[in-house]
Design a protein around this nucleic acid. Structure first.
Lengths: 239, 239
DNA sequence: GTCCTTCTGGTCACGACGACACTAAGATGA
DNA sequence: TCATCTTAGTGTCGTCGTGACCAGAAGGAC
């Protein structure tokens, strides 16, 4: 079975091992303690590979792109199939297509996602493990580089958009929101200044409820749903 | 030399048209007058399609990904083949993969590029036309959306990186640099404030040469090559 | 009750930025 | 020749966002 491209490349069948195939993977970030009762950390779930190449190594959740689904749908589907997770935020990260990144030619469209604490499925699925983003074992393929890039994007984007919402529940105190920022940026933030900044941004709606239990009760806030979670330019629906 | 645009139809048999194929396209920006002696405008070269689908319509330069080349190499190659251009700046934009964006299933990895005035090949190539980025005809596939997104990225990135260099020659006056910014952002900038900002950024090296010919001579500057053209995070070499 | 911790509001200094006045120097034209 | 115009470049000032820090409010631990 043959086909011909305009560049007269050797004819290949799409299922043959020498064709370029499209995979979709996702870097899923959550804030959780890596050890029980440890401090909050940027963590991500990885999947242990059960076949070659890189059998036994940890890798990003993902899978092959189905011909009938869009890239974003493929990302959602494959990460649900492998990890059981359904993230609250999903955005395309980058397309990786170095010739030697896999024994066969694979172009990976990589997404990155955020999930809230209540969305985390605790070890329910086989072959899934959680790791601190800063302290990963050697991963399969070029996945270490990919995670590093996703982490850079997360830290970058938290500075100018309100994606932190994707890591929190519906109601939260300013201290909890501040802790999200502090964990991602890995530095202390002044509580008073943080309050002023986030209040002036207009994205928060104060409720009349308070979180009690430790010292002075803190007011609970909700995010203003009218404001977009993150600006992605004229791309209303990702393709 | 064959002129190809992205998503030409190479498939002749059933299996191939069932498969997902990977194309690479590039949005190439330059600053040039759209009409002779008109004002400087953000413009881009498009290629007229010579076969279905969308025969006769204008489309982004591009072509199929070869199995032996990386994504960036494919972008460079295909835009050189179709337009004869070799851009000074090339960066991945986005991967477009909606199911219905083409009659056959095509995932397009789109790059965006900048070229300098001296790199522009003037109408040397058949089926290539230049258009103002704000005033495009209906393009093939989803290419109008793609250009809009690239334009958004250009305007965004010019604010926090020094990609404007990719649109200028080696030596330039501050007025010329300012005009680049004004054209991209479509608003006037105060010459005095612009000077202070760009001088304090540390990316400019003053020469001892001056551009004369109109009123007071203006000092020529060069860009500091030690500083990266644009920060792309931990991705030293794009894949 | 007395501390202690966190929440919340306020002040202050500094730096970035926009608006604008002013000087420098070559082009232009009577 | 010389006054005038236009662009190059400098200085000043008010505003605003931010970080550092102080102070009162309000409940927890003892």
């Amino acid at each position: 079975m043959t086909r011909t491209t305009v560049e007269d490349t050797p004819a290949v069948d799409a299922t043959a091992s020498d064709a370029t195939r499209v995979a979709v993977s996702t870097v899923i970030f959550a804030l959780r303690p890596v050890e029980p009762d440890g401090p909050l950390t940027v963590a991500l779930p990885l999947v242990r590979r059960t076949r070659d190449p890189h059998e036994g190594q940890w890798a990003l959740p993902g899978g092959w792109l189905d011909i009938r689904e869009s890239l974003g749908a493929a990302a959602s589907r494959t990460l649900a199939e492998t990890t059981g997770l359904a993230p609250s935020y999903l955005e395309q990260l980058y397309a990786f297509g170095a010739v030697d990144r896999s024994p066969t030619r694979v172009v990976s469209i990589v997404y990155w996602a955020l999930i809230r604490p209540d969305e985390i499925v605790e070890d329910g699925i086989e072959n899934v493990g959680w790791f601190g983003a800063e302290d990963l074992p050697p991963l399969a393929f070029d996945h270490n580089e990919i995670v590093d890039y996703a982490l850079w994007r997360l830290r970058n984007k938290v500075g100018y958009s309100r994606i932190a919402h994707g890591l929190l529940g519906d109601e939260f105190t300013l201290a909890e929101l501040r802790e999200v920022y502090q964990t991602i940026l890995d530095r202390k933030l002044d509580p008073a200044n943080f309050r002023r900044q986030v209040e002036n941004s207009g994205t928060l709606i104060p409720t009349d409820r308070y979180r009690t239990g430790s010292h002075r009760p803190a007011r609970l806030y909700r995010y203003n749903q009218d404001v977009e979670l993150a600006d992605r330019g004229p791309l209303s629906t990702p393709h």
